[in-house]
Amino acid sequence: MKKLNSTVCKVLVCAALVATGGLCLGLPPAFSSQEDITHVRSEALKPHTRPAALFRHDEHNEKAGIDDCATCHHGKDKDGKRDMADMTAGTDCVECHAVSPVKGQTALRRAFHLQCMGCHQERKQGPLHCTGCHTNG
């Protein structure tokens, strides 16, 4: 159960951690630190047709009791399958999940939805409907 939960939440954290990742890679930082993250990082999906998914990184993880970064920031094994042991915080999600994916990849938008909604569904907590996350509030 725990493993599954960590699986589905890994990518969420991924979005938050790209700021750090960006710093390490010498890219211009999107956020100065993870506590400043307020939305899922979805620049790759611009132009947005909906408000970016509301996601206050630290607040969310505290409330959800997520300590392990790999819960959302998962990696992949040598077959290209999802690997929950491989922590990838610091890598931008879009590096593995292209917006228009090649075969075997999960598209970025789908990966986000699977990650967030999958976990919410699993835990029976957190929004599942569109405006639950994609809100201007």
Partner: peptide, 14 residues
């Protein structure tokens, strides 16, 4: 759009 997202979410159809 919401419907397109559901197709993508459930089956990976774009």
């Amino acid at each position: 759009q919401g419907h397109a997202i559901l197709w993508e979410y459930a089956f990976g159809m774009r």
